[in-house]
């Protein structure tokens, strides 16, 4: 992997930072250099929030995404901050219900069906990895298992898997 810049965008409370931490941890397990950044408001919930992950086979100089190779959109306010900073050929996976440009993913519905409504973020992350193959499924699952609190672990793993299958199906 040369360099991949990924942004997970939404509003505070949707787990943008948590999904980014999982992606970053998976990248580390896979042997890459990685930097995970975030931007959010002083409010705990509801204002635009995003988390960035830069993955590279070389040490990372500037740790923030500049031209995104992928954006995962959980809510429009966060997405709007990044829509004009996409690299050519960038992958945009957006919660289907938002009606944003890019590929719609029924992340909230899939998470709901799994009994893990908090895990739409991980459905989208799984969809990205299923769609692009940038990191292996088992590496991502290892990261989810490592970082999830016990009571959410099974649901988070199921959400990642459902997303991954969805991503594969549209690849």
């Amino acid at each position: 992997m040369d360099v991949r810049e990924i942004v997970i965008a939404g509003v505070g409370g949707q787990g943008t930072v948590f999904a980014a931490r999982i992606l970053a941890h998976a990248a580390l397990i896979a042997g890459h250099h990685v930097a995970q950044s975030a931007s959010y408001g002083a409010e705990a919930r509801g204002t635009p929030a995003w988390a960035g992950v830069v993955i590279s086979s070389n040490p990372i100089v500037f740790p923030y995404p500049q031209h995104c190779d992928a954006v995962l959109a959980l809510a429009a306010p966060g997405y709007r901050l990044w829509e004009d900073r996409l690299a050519p050929g960038a992958v945009v996976l957006a919660e289907e219900a938002l009606g944003l440009p890019g590929i719609g993913v029924p992340a909230a519905r899939l998470a709901q069906e799994l009994g893990a409504p908090q895990a739409a973020n991980l459905v989208l992350l799984g969809a990205l990895l299923g769609y692009t193959g940038w990191l292996a499924r088992d590496v991502a699952a290892e990261a989810v298992a490592a970082l999830s609190p016990e009571r959410f672990r099974a649901g988070n793993l199921a959400a990642l898997e459902a997303g991954w299958r969805y991503g594969r199906s549209i690849a």
Partner: peptide, 9 residues
């Protein structure tokens, strides 16, 4: 804040 909150390897 940027370095304080940054996660990297």
């Amino acid at each position: 804040e940027a370095v304080g909150h940054l996660r990297e390897d």
